[in-house]
Design a protein around this nucleic acid. Structure first.
Lengths: 321, 321
DNA sequence: TCCCCGCTCGGAAACGTTTCCACGTGCGCG
DNA sequence: CGCGCACGTGGAAACGTTTCCGAGCGGGGA
């Protein structure tokens, strides 16, 4: 692969001139410009970004660490963030932590070693260590969808209380008084926040406060199915269930349908299939792509030396069932 | 952020010694090892990977260009590939081309500028130019799920003919004689191959050869719905439809259900929701994660100077409906 | 006792850029 | 006619590594 020296030699100028021409520095003669461009084209020259970033301070790369690409919510978020970065002339490096702190740590180390310009991450449960060490190393960090205690970084989240409230009042209005919750793992902030918001609103509305109506799960499909079965085994069983993410909803839906029980399911995150099943699921929609885009804007602001504030996004109830 | 010089100064040794200790070179005294490790820990030193890769030939980063992260098939493939890379001690940089050649080209340029060790890509329609220029620049490339004319790179694909055959014989055995196809875009090789396999097998089995039973779509949800409506508008309408990917199947399913017609739908790619809808969909399962892993192994082999052959993977019929 | 060898280590070059500095050259103006 | 200035350019330093080369030093064998 050819270097700037090859181009300089072919064009008959110094490497300084090549660099100036290619970076659009006006201190170049039309003739040099012509010769250099010609030579670069002929050699198929692509500047070595790693050498550039060694000299320059910045790399133009933004690290994006996502809990699980296969979860459509995060895939959408990543996509939104990526589009925003692209529009700002930056390239994104997506890491898939797979809900595993060890893998996350590994990618964060890689980001750090690569000296990315900033990191956008939806942290894993386990520990806040990874994120904290990035912040302490002076790397701009924005947190996605989940907060992390003791880490000084802006966060973009959805309004958990609002979402839960929309779901519960909807179910209450439809006559339900005994509502179950399939909660995400308490190791992530969203999981914990949902549980407390659920308990608070349930009490405000005077609904059945039985603690066994709150079932913890791991956020995956199988966990959702298991939690749903535990709820169905209660006597009396809840007449409605709220599930905290799309993956768990799919497991819960199958379990409920398999049991033949008449239990109404409401899910966080809207997915195409939720409209297709019978009965269709009412959902608390969270615009993940928008969240990703907003977070990326915050990160870019942070990189440029700003001090952006955290953002809370609204949720929306889509009633179907 | 501290450099190797800072570590050397604090440990009271030369930078050469620091480098040797940290890279595990045995030509170091126990005392140096101790002092260097201590200093590095104290400073929170992380070697600058960009400087390393400038000196070394390799970067340890593999570029992964995917058609669309939000398509679960590709998300799974990316995940499989990533796991494999991780196991081989490499880090993956995921680019989401979004089924857009311009974005793909941009990412491929970035990969090239970053001097990644290799690129695994599922090419967009448009043109083969991006992939070809990588190959010509001497960068190891493996193609995922789609071939590209005139590009000298190994490919990992599913056995298109086998999949189509499984689907059609299944439908034939259930008594269907007039079967529609919702095909992916003909701009990608898989789209074209499916159409010709469909036509060939349909004729071999003596089924209705009407050309309007093959409807082209863009591979997205909306396109699938439109194509399904065109098929339903035929008279007589087909009694069964084969849809080429999960996104289009979801659109087609909704269109068919909305029309009230009794049309059996079979889809490529298995997704959770296909089991949940009523009636459940029979599918031609393609193990995307496995495809990703296989392709990554091929790429690693190519990077190490091998000459791997292209691989064709089997498909599997899961009969449900 | 002397030489040689092996072990550690420091110094320096090299990787491919960008940018500062200094040096012509040509022109306009006093 | 000569001086200064703008403009274009080449050379060199610097970014943070790795690795080669050579040197110092100690010990063991002849």
């Amino acid at each position: 692969m050819s270097t700037i020296h090859d181009v300089a030699r072919l064009a008959g100028v110094s490497i300084g001139t090549v660099s100036r021409v290619l970076s659009g520095n006006p201190a170049t003669s039309p003739e040099s410009r012509e010769r250099v461009r010609e030579a670069a084209l002929q050699l198929g020259y692509t500047p070595n970004a790693r050498a550039q970033s060694l000299r320059l301070a910045r790399t133009g790369v933004i690290g994006l660490s996502i809990s699980d690409v296969r979860n459509p919510f995060f895939a959408d978020a990543a996509h939104g963030a990526e589009q925003e970065a692209l529009a700002a002339g930056r390239v994104t490096m997506l890491a898939n932590a797979d809900e595993d702190s060890a893998i996350e740590a590994r990618y964060l180390r890689a980001f750090r070693a690569q000296r990315v310009d900033g990191v956008l991450m939806s942290p894993q449960g386990g520990s806040a260590e990874g994120a904290r060490s990035l912040v302490e190393a002076g790397i701009p960090v924005v947190l996605l969808n989940r907060t992390l205690d003791g880490v000084d970084a802006p966060v973009v989240t959805f309004d958990v209380r609002q979402g839960i409230e929309q779901a519960i009042t909807h179910l209450r209005d439809r006559g339900h008084r005994r509502i179950g919750l399939i909660a995400g793992p308490v190791s992530v902030s969203t999981g914990r926040a949902r549980v407390s918001a659920f308990e608070a609103i349930r009490d405000e509305l005077g609904l059945d406060p039985a603690p066994e109506l709150v079932q913890l799960a791991d956020g995956r499909r199988g966990g959702g199915a298991d939690a749903a079965e535990r709820l169905l085994a209660l006597s009396p069983a809840p007449t409605a269930v709220l599930s905290s993410n799309a993956l768990m909803s799919s497991g819960a839906f199958e379990a409920i349908r398999g049991s033949g029980a008449a239990v109404e399911l409401v899910s966080f995150d809207d997915q195409d299939w939720m409209r297709l099943v019978d009965p269709p699921l009412s959902v608390i929609e969270q615009d993940a792509a928008h969240m990703g885009a907003v977070a990326m804007r915050l990160l870019l602001e942070l990189i440029d030396g700003g001090h952006p504030r955290s953002v809370t996004l609204p949720t929306r109830l889509i009633a179907r069932g």
